[in-house]
Design a protein around this nucleic acid. Structure first.
Lengths: 292, 292
DNA sequence: GTTCCGCATGAATCGATAG
DNA sequence: ACTATCGATTCATGCGGAA
């Protein structure tokens, strides 16, 4: 099997035009959030955000397969003591474009940014908006089943054994990091609230989401050999995870420095022999118990 | 001190007109959600929901004190495989009325309703929208502080004691837990994600939220002697909790059966002995941690 | 090799200060 | 008056170094 990973340098709005209709199984991205500051990464102003994004979502609608899914990670900023409404306006406008707004997952960021203010608490969650092209779409729910039981106890177990599991933590994380418990035969379907910590290590790109986030959705909405697209690929997390999980992927990045970083980290083609596929199976313990 | 609890029978839109301007410190309510079925409780149709609610929120804006807060518990239903957009439209329209949309808390329902669907997971969260009349409002953050979640330091110390404390720890965000064991210096401010279970005892009113929900917001946004309003009081949870916490409260319910149930459960006046106002302010925090 | 502890830092926000 | 910049605040997490 041959897995292709294509990273493009340029503006998504333009680059997307070169991608075929109905060719992508999953789009997952975390676009630059609206920001009033001018010099920040991709700083689109709040009141321009919807108009900036709509031409891109129009292209995304075109390239997505009818059975595909679009996951949009976004959160509105506080402006003048108030939450902005551009995300809500965006949802409403995207529906007019033809998107179905199927679901809103919540990403609960367990380690949110600290701070103390007189009128609000720390912001500890982000939206993961699920859009679809049709009401019927591919969803492999069994791939992301979680062990039954009290979530609180589970989390505590994980935390007390964090040190032991340090090495496995990056590979395994479906919901969090506890892989050893996956041998339990009693499993349940997850809910639409995801508990993941942000990765606060030395990424050069400030806005990377944790690998477990794209990993979870790639498991849920694609199978091996499918194609994943991230039109704001940043440090390339989506593409790296996709390649590791034997999915073809496309990444687009407008900033040359990030583009170069990603190009260095990823080979454009990954050849999988039978042996290597077996190796992947061993690393991803969850797949063993999942129903194909 | 005398605490008054007034329950009214009738339509909120009308009853609210009898309440004075700028007289309420906190409005917290869980209105009937939109529903396509006609015979369900308060079944307002999806596409009529915003127009149905706006006259009520207009009255709420009038009766709320400038320093007050409005907490709206709501979640959009799935209609034809899609999330409805009426909540977002409502937020946008309420801002036009003059409300500030300060924040959106997430209520993570740890024990969400069971079920399995081919195209979605269990819905395990609801919105708690915070609206304000001014950008400055009363907020008593210390009242809802939670124990520090730094288990790393305590991991392998005092295992037995730690285990006991863990159940009350950060995962619960202070809901339904015994706060008396907390030490002041071990506390942290909470985030905008609230973790609490729905109460699954068979209330006659189907849409009751758990007592810990209004309790948390009453602690956060009011002090003793303040006034709390629930324009859709249902089984009276908000008023019962408010009275127990020595807050005046107003409840409005349109369905006579519920109204009667609440009237039976609550005395309209509660007299509190031996309260010294002067001492109260300084010892407020200790009192709360001691009593609860 | 494991366990323990210190520390940097992360899609933040407000309010004060400077231009 | 209005905008741009900066410091203070604050805590879960994972990494690195030490025991």
């Amino acid at each position: 099997m041959e897995i292709k990973t294509d990273i493009f340098l340029g503006d998504s709005k333009e680059i997307l035009k070169s991608i075929s209709d109905n060719s992508v199984d999953l789009i997952i991205t975390s676009p630059p959030y609206a920001d009033q500051r001018k010099n920040s990464y991709g700083g689109i102003k709040t009141d321009e955000y919807v108009n900036w994004f709509l031409p891109i979502s129009e292209q995304l609608l075109r390239v997505l397969k009818p059975s595909g899914t679009f996951i949009l990670n976004i959160k509105e900023k506080v402006v003048n003591g108030e939450r902005s409404t551009y995300v809500m306006e965006l949802i409403i406008e995207m529906r007019k474009q033809g998107w179905f707004w199927t679901e809103e997952f919540i990403w609960h960021k367990k380690n949110s940014y600290p701070g103390k203010w007189p009128n609000r608490f720390r912001d500890s969650w982000e939206r993961l908006l699920q859009f679809n092209k049709n009401k019927k779409f591919n969803m492999y729910q069994e791939e992301v089943m979680v062990p039954m039981g009290d979530w609180a106890k589970n989390r505590l177990k994980k935390l007390s054994e964090t040190d032991k599991k340090r090495d496995e933590s990056k590979v395994g994380s479906g919901f969090g990091k506890n892989i050893s418990n996956w041998l339990n035969r009693d499993k349940a379907y997850p809910t639409n609230v995801l508990h993941l910590a942000t990765e606060c290590n030395n990424k050069k790109h400030s806005a990377a989401f944790p690998e477990s986030l794209p990993e979870w959705f790639i498991k849920l909405f694609t199978k091996e050999g499918d194609t994943v697209l991230d039109p704001f690929t940043g440090s390339g997390t989506t593409n790296i995870v996709a390649q590791r999980m034997n999915r073809n992927s496309i990444g687009i990045e407008i900033i040359e420095d990030y583009y170069n970083i990603v190009k260095e980290k990823i080979n454009s083609t990954k050849y999988i022999l039978f042996r290597q596929e077996g190796k992947y199976e061993k690393t991803e313990q969850k797949r063993h118990t999942a129903v194909r």
